[in-house]
Amino acid sequence: MHPQTTLQSADAAPPMVELRKVSKWYGPFQALKDVSLSVRKGERMIICGPSGSGKSTAIRCVNRLEQHQEGQIFVEGIELTPEFKDIERIRREVGMVFQQFNLFPHLTVLQNLTLAPQRVRKMSRKQAEDLAMRYLSRVRISEQAQKYPSQLSGGQQQRVAIARALCMEPQIMLFDEPTSALDPEMIKEVLDVMVELAEAHMTMICVTHEMGFARTVADTMVFMDHGRIVEVAPPEAFFSNPQNERTKLFLSQLLAH
């Protein structure tokens, strides 16, 4: 299968996220080279690849934590041009979970979750707290609501981070190596939450090295290397019959241990 570069067929709904020939440079270094991706509503896309392949950069361009220099990015049909000012509007609909959790250390778990709904969606405190408690139970951590992030384990913190992103009830979730900073015994609890989310058909783009998880939930596997998309395929084809040499090499290294 070749990397998707064309628009979806006319009778399908427009893609939730679309990158068209996106390139990005950090000074002289080109981090993204002609990257094109398309994610439909409810699609679960997993991006994998070696360090420095541009996978994190690519998803960070979707909510403009990084700005691309060439090509076009569309989120729910809205183009992220250089002049586009209302980036907060996009960010309300795109949730992000970070490798380093990035919880607000001076706030309790509950306050971490209610901050954005109150200040951005203008909810009342009661509404925001009810919403927060709902998502906290969904990630199975409601008993920790009054604790501070420093009092929680890594796995618990990341689940709080997922709940925090979900409280804004986004249409799209981005995961940037969510389990890479976790001790092995805590990875499962976070992946379980992500699997549940995927099974509820949340549109998600996930950068991860967890191939077991990828095989379980992915609709589309994407392999990136040196800033380019090398291979795009559904998981069965991707894992059992990778087409590209670099993909084969990467998978053999990854699945070796």
Binding site: E88, R91, F104, A116, M168
Partner: peptide, 12 residues
Amino acid sequence: GQWEASAALGLN
């Protein structure tokens, strides 16, 4: 990361 997380949540 604090700037990024708060930005990603849509805070101005």
